[in-house]
């Protein structure tokens, strides 16, 4: 264990107001801390710069999954296990269940949170591609009030986000798919479980009259942050399922990615395999 414990401090506010107050008073000093499944790994390795933490785990305001007619709203402290076990999520957002199921293993799923997965901002995170595919919106809270931001505009670059020093992610809101929809999620990890994604792709489509009326594709591990595959989407939207331009979409996908070589996979592998996974998704879609 290489973190230096005596330097560390952690505060445990008992209300959201108290937490926001501390964040606002000392901007940039306190690092929000939820399930610890990312921060503690870096701390244990002695590579965590932050030493002061704000424990959110007692903030009931950030918990729970609320359903209304048109959407599901996830408190940012919703764990992967809670996602896996929620009937409404299974019904409306099957990709999100699959993403949660392949995040680490059970001990991680019991502790890790959806909000943490978002703000840790790893390009390889497992739930963001699904959130992108479902057109998620984030509700951010600060002493200045609430603001909403579309999730596909939240990540600004590698570990850079549209999130002020005094803001917390309060809720993640997913609009329920309407009409006839298609869902696809695939993670290509370093192994079958307890794995980090080398490539992941989530897609959600609305099908009308045998055509692709709408399509959202989220990609992981192929750019500095989770990204929408807007070029590939554009190549496909409006096309008939019976004649999807698979080759054109694969080609367009190259414009959506900027993969790098790292210790888990080469840029070339990431790029080819993401194209192949898109092809696999489109074959599934054609048969839907």
């Amino acid at each position: 264990m290489r973190g230096y414990l005596p330097d560390c401090d952690i505060r445990v506010p008992d209300s959201l107001a108290a937490a926001l107050d501390l964040l606002a008073r000392e901007p940039g000093v306190w690092t929000p801390f939820a399930g610890g499944t990312d921060l503690m790994v870096v701390y244990n390795a002695g590579r965590l710069k932050a030493t002061r933490f704000l424990d959110l785990s007692r903030l009931s305001e950030l918990r729970g999954i609320q359903e209304d007619e048109t959407s599901l709203a996830f408190g940012s402290l919703t764990t992967y296990t809670e996602i896996r076990e929620c009937r409404a999520v299974h019904q409306h957002f099957p990709n999100l269940v699959k993403s949660a199921r392949v995040t680490g293993a059970l001990a991680i799923q019991n502790r890790g949170t959806l909000g943490g997965n978002i703000v840790n901002a790893s390009p390889a995170a497992d739930t963001p591609p699904s959130l992108l595919a479902y057109g998620a919106e984030l509700e951010l809270v600060s002493p200045r009030g609430l603001r909403r931001v579309a999730y596909d505009r939240f990540h600004l670059g590698y570990k850079r986000m549209d999130l002020a020093a005094d803001e917390l992610v309060a809720r993640i809101i997913l609009p329920k798919p309407t009409g006839r929809s298609f869902h696809y999620f695939r993670k290509v990890g370093t192994r079958q479980a307890q794995a980090i994604a080398k490539v992941s792709l989530a897609a959600h489509a609305r099908i009308e009259d045998g055509h692709l009326a709408a399509l959202w594709i989220g990609l992981g591990s192929v750019a500095p942050a989770p990204v929408r595959a807007r070029n590939a989407e554009a190549a496909l939207i409006g096309k008939p399922l019976a004649a999807l331009p698979i080759e054109a979409a694969r080609e367009a996908l190259l414009g959506d990615m900027s993969p790098i070589d790292d210790i888990r996979a080469s840029a070339h592998y990431r790029s080819v395999v993401t194209q192949n996974v898109l092809g696999h998704m489109l074959r599934d879609l054609a048969g839907a």
Binding site: I10, T37, M40, V41, N44, G104, L106, A107, R111
Partner: peptide, 24 residues
């Protein structure tokens, strides 16, 4: 491992499995 990967430190916390190396 100290990185929540191996599971040797697994304990039940309020009835759920957790990696105790990742819990302050």
């Amino acid at each position: 491992c100290g990185e929540g990967e191996c599971g040797a430190c697994t304990v039940l916390l309020n009835g759920q499995v957790v990696n105790s190396c990742l819990v302050p």
